[in-house]
Computed example of a mutant assay.
Amino acid sequence: MSARIAAVDYFLPPAVLTNEDLAAQFPEWSVEKIAAKTGIDRRHISGPDEFSSDLATAAGEALFANHGIDPHSIEYLIVCTQSPDYYLPSTACLVQERLGLPTTTGATDITLGCSGYIYALGLAKGLIESGQVSNVLVITADTYTKFINPEDKSVRTIFGDGAAATLVTDAGEATAITGITYGTNGAGAKSLIVPQGGLRPGEALQPKSDARARSLEPTGYDLYMDGPDIFNFTLEVVPASVDAILRKSSLTADDIDLYVFHQANAFMLEHLRKKLGVPSEKFFVALEGFGNTVSSTIPIALTEAVRQGALRDGMKVMLLGFGVGLSWGGLVVTW
């Protein structure tokens, strides 16, 4: 048995935050400056009564409707989110019931951000290739904008909300997911943190994350990101990860037809593309209308690549996620 990606789709909440909206609130940042720094023109924002389970359910429904998938065929559900509705129960249990999946379905959450899609695919592959199940539904869903202080323009320009759903299924003998690599450096946990709302004060880990230390009035969560630290971490781990994925896949860079990385921001992605020497036509970017949707950036980009004709059957695609944790992971998919 071998696992493959059979279908992917996504859902975005209807409310939109544009660069014009942000420039009106922060006149010192023009529309052009925001677009140049981030590559983002607009981001979708979850409403006051719209949470990760809502987005996850809508993404699953889109996958089922657009790809003719029977919910009763799902044997296992993995929900990747860092913004769960509740501490308990798990978001996966809520989504299982709302999607009408059988009560014989296994369901679990994993709490990873930018690398989460890769980790979820790795777990799905393990469940299938160990003979436990044949069909796994992987859903990524995050509402990071609920964590952001409204006066913190440095992160409001970057993050958007969204969810994506992927069906991973038994492909028989053909090997379709290879070269899986993982990495973790918890020493960098302080670089991206929500200091409030958990059981332990975040200031103990990262004193700079205190909202008042950033001249902000605390609002309940107050996400903190050390942009330079994240950027330097990315430049260090991504090239090494690409080499490791190719080595484990027994492939060369020329064998890869398309690269789909975590869509952090356009400046970082372009820097990585040039550093790796990847031609622009083989490096897919889908940021402009979405923003950084954390765990959903890669599956959203995959969906867009298919719709735009950039990703076709038989192509080899390298997927690579990196960020909060600090955590990273990558693999090669034969589409």
Results as ranks from 00 to 15, higher is better:
residue 120 A to C: 14
residue 185 N to T: 06
residue 332 V to I: 13
residue 178 T to S: 14
residue 269 L to T: 02
residue 92 A to Q: 04
residue 260 V to L: 13
residue 252 T to F: 04
residue 93 C to G: 01
residue 247 R to C: 00
residue 110 I to E: 06
residue 228 P to C: 05
residue 229 D to T: 07
residue 182 Y to H: 11
residue 203 E to A: 08
residue 33 K to Y: 05
residue 169 T to K: 13
residue 17 L to V: 07
residue 288 E to P: 08
residue 90 S to A: 11
residue 160 G to D: 09
residue 118 I to L: 12
residue 259 Y to C: 02
residue 313 D to I: 07
residue 214 R to N: 07
residue 279 P to C: 04
residue 87 Y to M: 10
residue 125 K to R: 12
residue 215 S to H: 12
residue 251 L to P: 14
residue 9 D to H: 12
residue 335 W to M: 07
residue 17 L to M: 10
residue 133 V to E: 05
residue 124 A to G: 04
residue 276 L to T: 02
residue 82 Q to F: 05
residue 29 W to Q: 11
residue 186 G to K: 00
residue 65 A to V: 01
residue 192 L to N: 01
residue 217 E to I: 04
residue 268 M to S: 02
residue 327 S to M: 02
residue 35 A to K: 14
residue 225 M to G: 03
residue 96 Q to H: 10
residue 327 S to L: 03
residue 170 D to G: 02
residue 76 Y to L: 09
residue 235 L to K: 11
residue 227 G to A: 10
residue 133 V to N: 10
residue 223 L to D: 03
residue 16 V to G: 03
residue 251 L to D: 00
residue 102 P to M: 03
residue 66 N to H: 12
residue 190 K to C: 05
residue 277 G to E: 01
residue 238 V to K: 11
residue 34 I to G: 00
residue 107 A to W: 15
residue 194 V to R: 13
residue 239 P to H: 01
residue 116 G to I: 06
residue 55 L to P: 10
residue 217 E to D: 12
residue 24 A to V: 02
residue 73 S to M: 04
residue 199 L to R: 09
residue 305 A to C: 07
residue 4 R to G: 10
residue 210 D to W: 02
residue 182 Y to A: 00
residue 88 L to C: 09
residue 247 R to V: 04
residue 101 L to E: 03
residue 226 D to P: 15
residue 321 G to L: 05
residue 223 L to P: 14
residue 203 E to T: 10
residue 242 V to C: 06
residue 301 A to G: 04
residue 293 T to F: 13
residue 148 I to H: 09
residue 216 L to S: 08
residue 201 P to N: 10
residue 334 T to M: 08
residue 26 F to C: 01
residue 88 L to H: 09
residue 201 P to D: 08
residue 221 Y to N: 03
residue 122 G to L: 09
residue 38 T to F: 15
residue 243 D to G: 01
residue 200 R to W: 11
residue 318 M to G: 02
residue 35 A to F: 14
residue 161 D to W: 09
residue 200 R to T: 05
residue 112 L to V: 07
residue 309 G to V: 04
residue 330 G to P: 14
residue 181 T to P: 10
residue 299 P to V: 03
residue 21 D to H: 15
residue 86 Y to D: 09
residue 310 A to N: 13
residue 76 Y to H: 08
residue 316 K to L: 05
residue 296 S to G: 03
residue 153 K to H: 13
residue 173 E to W: 11
residue 145 T to K: 14
residue 205 L to H: 05
residue 323 G to S: 07
residue 299 P to L: 05
residue 139 I to W: 15
residue 32 E to H: 10
residue 327 S to I: 00
residue 75 E to H: 14
residue 188 G to E: 11
residue 287 L to W: 12
residue 109 D to Y: 15
residue 63 L to T: 08
residue 107 A to F: 14
residue 13 P to G: 01
residue 92 A to S: 15
residue 60 G to E: 14
residue 326 L to R: 03
residue 264 A to R: 04
residue 144 Y to M: 11
residue 224 Y to L: 02
residue 214 R to Q: 12
residue 189 A to K: 12
residue 130 S to N: 13
residue 75 E to N: 04
residue 157 T to S: 15
residue 180 I to D: 01
residue 87 Y to G: 00
residue 48 P to T: 00
residue 276 L to V: 02
residue 108 T to P: 01
residue 326 L to M: 14
residue 229 D to R: 11
residue 226 D to K: 06
residue 197 G to T: 03
residue 151 E to S: 09
residue 212 R to N: 07
residue 196 Q to K: 14
residue 186 G to E: 08
residue 111 T to H: 15
residue 66 N to Q: 11
residue 253 A to V: 06
residue 206 Q to K: 07
residue 155 V to I: 13
